[in-house]
Each structure stands twice: as structure tokens, then as C-alpha cells.
Design a protein around this nucleic acid. Structure first.
Lengths: 229, 229
DNA sequence: ATTAAAGTGTGATCTATATCACAAAAAAAT
DNA sequence: ATTTTTTTGTGATATAGATCACACTTTAAT
């Protein structure tokens, strides 16, 4: 896809006119990342704003001994960047390509400049950040209130919402995500996640296939996720 | 304190001039809330932006049977508002006065207007939101990685950072917060929180007094909080 | 195709923390 | 000042989920 067409389709820029978009095009670059490649690390400076063009990325924090939490997964048209970009403050999360991905990069200067000239863009960013904040807050509540089944259910609902495709078979999630990744998303161990998925399968709520997951009964999953929340 | 002096001291408005501040003063109102009074509920519309002038408020989500998580506590000069204010979307948290409090209110329209005219304000909001998002993300990691001692330690560090006062005795936290509130902040039960505090006291890291908490050895608390993160 | 590596399912423990149940202490109400 | 209510400490117990261990399966590498 042409970069200009892509930029036009990004919600962040939806209020800009042709000329303004062309300007962004001229100041932006593009980069590709291979699956599992680290796009940037917790410690790096927030020098660029990234807009994901293809693929998906995970934002995560790591604990000791290989433990990791996935904070969120982002899909095309969403932006990210060490949030130092916005608040000048550091120690943020790690961003890793979840699949082969492409991103458009705008450097910090140009981006701040853009915002100065286009308050609509700043408003959009505020809106997206507050949406993400709300999601994070709900996640905190899930971790405190829900048991293992509830946590897995919550994670599945997020995946459904972000990238589930409705088919006659059911809702298909075809990110190839390993048990371990799902468990990092739910905040559980791999083993517990496996056992929970088996229970869901036995209950007829999901079907597991080699590399996709099919949600047969969203209602059951929803009920689990709302048990205590 | 005069409202105009107060507004001038709010970081959100630090780039505005005298005239602009006077304008805000003219479009804003003021309200007082008694301790434990609900300022607004999860379901309410985001009609106003609130800027806390005196006291403190807690932002929380409730689960079943009286369970609750405190997402954050806000202090004077910080803003809040159903974030529907920004993203037009609902189902947010409940805000309750933690102590007797006063807030300045600006209605949605006027506020959006203000942002349109003053990109600096939008930038400040972006910056604050991304700071809150980062904090929420770290909290998610704490809940997944840390044990009870770590979680309590993390909560104490937050309190120290936001409102600890250094004295020769140690760092004093004089929010009168009950065990239950601290446990809602840490994501634990009241009983576990009590036991952890006792351990910290035995270790000489804190001293508990009738209505204040004194941190004697911040280093011990820090070590606990970083055990696995 | 065969071998190697990575990921998954599942049983058997073990343990941290929730839960339950009071008594003691403190705060609020009369 | 007494009584009532709320909050706190602390023991005893139960249990969900972590941890460990290993066979089995799938995917990747040669």
C-alpha cells in the first residue's frame, strides 16, 4: 500500500487534509521488523512516534527469570512510541514485533511540531490514551478480582474485540499465539492457562486448532469474565 | 485560596497568561465534597472536568460483594473527570472524596474549546495521561510478578512518592488510611496486608502510629518492591 | 527425511494467601 | 462516660494455582 493512502486511513490523522498528509509523508520514514524482533527497549529514548502499518506488536514488561507480562497487543493503524515521547520521562515498556511488521516513523521533533499546528491530532491522542488507560485500569481490576478462568476469559475477549473474525464456524482468532503468550496476557502460568483452555473446550465454548482458536460460545466466555467484576 | 491564584498554580494551565486564566476562572465553578462522598459514578456522563483544589480523591472500581480496587489516589492540582470527557466512551471508574475536598469544575464544552485554542494544554494532558498509563502498566506488572510483601511495598512507595513528608523521624504518610484501604490499593485482603505490615514493622522498616505511618527504612521497602520486578 | 528444538498436555506436589472466626482495641455515637 | 459500631490483629484451615517433572507433539533445521 502507498504510504500516503495508509496515512489517510489512520484515525489519528483523519482530520488532516491532503496537503497536510503529504507533508507528514515527506517527514516520515518506514521500517520493517521481523517476527520477534525488538522494536525498542525499556531504556531507549523516545525519539520516534511509530504508526503500525502491517502486522502486530506486543508491548510488554519483563520480570526476573524470563517472566513477562504482555501489556497490550497493537494492530495496524495504532501508534506507539516510548511514551517519553510525550512526557519526557523514561523507563517504559519493550515493544516487540509479534508478527512480521511494518511501521511508519515520525521523529519526535516533527511530531511535536505537528501537534502544535493541529490540535485535532492532540485531541485524538488524548482520546486514545484515555481509552488505553481505561483498559489498563480494567485489567488491574481483573487481576485482583478474577480467578484463573476469569483471567483467561478476559484475555480472550480482548483478542476477540481487537481481531476476532466472525465466520459461520464461530469467532476466529488467528494470531498464532502460543500458550505462553496467552498466559503472559492473562497473568498466569503456562500450565494453568492450558488447563483452563481445556475446561473451556470441554464446556464447548472454544475449539482449538493447530494455529487458530475458534470461539464457539462467546456468551460462556463473557460470563466467566464477569463472574466477579 | 483565591480561585485565580489556585488556577495559576495548576501545571495544566502553567502556559496560559493572566487573561486566559481569568477567562477560565469566569467559566469555572467550585464544589466541596465531604469525606466519603461520591463525586461521580462509573455510569455518569462525563460532563465536567474536575481539578482538585483541596483534599484527596480515590478512583476505584468495585467488584462483587463490596470488593474494591483503588486505581489511584489524586491530590490537589490534579485533574480528573469521567474520561468519557475525552473519548466519548463510557463505563469508567468511581471517584470518591478520600478526605473533605474541594474541586474546580469546568464543563465539557468550555474545556474542549479551551484545548482547541491552546494546544499546550492538550500537550500537558497527553503527558499526564501517558504518565498515568505507565503507572497503571507498572501496577499490572506488580500484580503479576510480586508476592504480598512486594505488593504492599509497592503501594507504600506510591504513597511516599505522592505525599510522603520527610521529617527527622522518617518519611511520614499522614493520610489516615485504614487497613482495608491499603489492601484495596495493594490488591490483597485486609488480613494479609496486616500481617505484611507487621513483618515490615518487625524488620524496622516502618512504624505504625494511631493515624499515620512512618517509613523508617525506605531502602528495605524498595528492595521488597523490586524483588522480582 | 531425519534429527533437533520448541512448545504442549497432564499428573503429583507444595505453598502462599484467601477465608473463616473471634477477641481486642479504637473510634464514634449517645 | 457508656454503649455501640467500626476497625484491627491473629490463629486455624482450606484451596487455587504455582512449581516440578516428564512424555508427547508439533515445528524448524539440516
Amino acid at each position: 500500500m502507498e504510504r500516503s493512502d495508509f496515512l489517510k486511513s489512520v484515525p489519528l490523522f483523519s482530520d488532516l487534509n491532503r496537503e497536510e498528509l503529504r507533508q507528514i509523508e515527506s517527514i516520515s520514514g518506514e521500517k520493517r521488523y521481523r517476527k520477534n524482533e525488538i522494536i525498542f527497549h525499556a531504556e531507549d529514548l523516545g525519539a520516534y512516534l511509530f504508526i503500525l502499518k502491517e502486522g502486530s506488536v506486543k508491548i510488554s514488561l519483563q520480570g526476573r527469570e524470563g517472566r513477562e507480562v504482555i501489556l497490550r497487543i497493537l494492530y495496524p493503524k495504532e501508534f506507539f512510541g516510548d511514551m517519553a515521547l510525550l512526557d519526557g520521562y523514561h523507563r517504559s515498556a519493550t515493544v516487540t514485533a509479534f508478527e512480521d511488521s511494518k511501521a511508519v516513523l515520525i521523529n519526535r521533533e516533527d511530531f511535536l511540531n505537528l501537534i502544535g499546528k493541529h490540535p485535532e491530532v492532540a485531541l485524538k491522542i488524548m482520546s486514545i490514551l484515555s481509552k488505553r488507560l481505561r483498559k489498563a485500569d480494567e485489567r488491574i481490576a481483573s487481576l485482583v478480582f478474577l480467578d484463573a478462568h476469569g483471567k483467561v476469559a478476559r484475555s480472550l475477549l480482548d483478542l476477540i474485540q481487537e481481531q476476532g473474525k466472525k465466520t459461520e464456524e464461530g469467532i476466529v482468532i488467528d494470531l498464532k499465539l502460543r500458550r505462553e503468550e496467552l498466559s503472559d496476557l492473562a497473568g498466569l502460568t503456562r500450565e494453568t492457562t492450558t488447563r483452563v483452555l481445556k475446561d473451556f473446550e470441554t464446556a464447548g465454548a472454544i475449539r482449538r486448532e493447530r494455529k487458530r482458536l475458534i470461539i464457539l460460545r462467546e456468551d460462556i466466555i463473557k460470563r466467566e469474565a464477569e463472574k466477579s467484576l
